[in-house]
Nucleic acid binder design. Structure first.
Lengths: 158, 158
DNA sequence: TCAATGTGATTGACACGTGAATCATGCGGC
DNA sequence: GCCGCATGATTCACGTGTCAATCACATTGA
């Protein structure tokens, strides 16, 4: 049997697919974020935080719990919360059980803003992302995503 | 025939595919960029600019020409060039034909840095992206990307 | 008790992105 | 020539991301 040498670099076709993929879906993300911003004055970060808080018991969470839940750096969350607090979307209050910690609480205004943003946002996802594909193709895309996740060993147990 | 009402929002499966896709490939991008940075001390922005300049006639380009080529906002490019110039990767010199313009010139150091970065970068693309998929699957991903590009009307002639 | 260490959270320095404003130069028509 | 507008490029203010440093409080063990 001949010696097999595995290519260590992509073929030009593979490289083209990589570049097209990353560039294209960067644009998709930007478009959907732009719609969110126009429709609801929310950034994707805002939305992510509001989504998590909306689903939380008592519409509130410990800051570090929130960071873990959405898988953000703590300092990133800190800045985000600061901006959102300035805009009145949430409140941070000292934590009774642990004086170091902070409870992040969704305000009524934050809840309202999130509620109002949901439908337009989902519509944007449908129009910009989902509608680009035939059903079969979307399923394949889901499978490819799954293959990537297992390649990267995401979804690994804690 | 019954009245057909087209869903205006994604099904939960479609939404899950969207979220998984965007999250997963965000991580892919971050990993490949991290490798580039570790291997070569270059950001993806640096790489993009160096790639364009390397391919340019005379290793130099007018600033606006460069911006158009890589499809960047002019102000974004301005900042990027400033940082890269400070690091000695390129030079900006006044333009003879048009005193408003600037010529961006790749320095020897910039050329060297780019050359050294190429192979490790391609390896990273292969290992992190390409190797995640079966060949058939990668082709499907390419087709899905194409579908998205035509959905967004990218690739439209100027 | 209290020093050592761990943990929750913020801060600071910087890289990077966008859009609006600015500034200088080119250029067409009078 | 020169006024007005177009164009090349940078600057500014701000949002957003990272990492390292910091600070306050908690916990633990001699």
């Amino acid at each position: 049997m001949g010696t097999m040498k595995r290519r260590s670099v992509p073929t030009s076709e593979e490289l083209a697919i990589w570049r097209a993929h990353i560039e294209t879906f960067e644009i998709v993300r930007a478009r959907i974020e732009a719609r969110l911003h126009q429709d609801s004055q929310l950034s994707s970060g805002d939305y992510r935080v509001l989504l998590a808080l909306s689903e939380a018991d008592g519409k509130s969470m410990r800051s570090s719990e929130l960071a873990a839940h959405i898988q953000w750096e703590r300092s990133r969350l800190s800045g985000q919360l600061g901006r959102m607090e300035r805009r009145g979307l949430l409140r941070r209050e000292p934590c009774a059980e642990d004086a170091r910690g902070a409870n992040v609480v969704l305000t009524d205004e934050g809840a309202r803003a999130f509620r109002a943003s949901t439908l337009p946002h989902l519509r944007a996802v449908k129009e910009v992302f989902v509608d680009a594909f035939a059903p079969e193709q979307l399923a394949q895309l889901g499978e490819a995503t799954g293959a990537m996740r297992s390649h990267l060993n995401l979804d690994a147990r804690p």
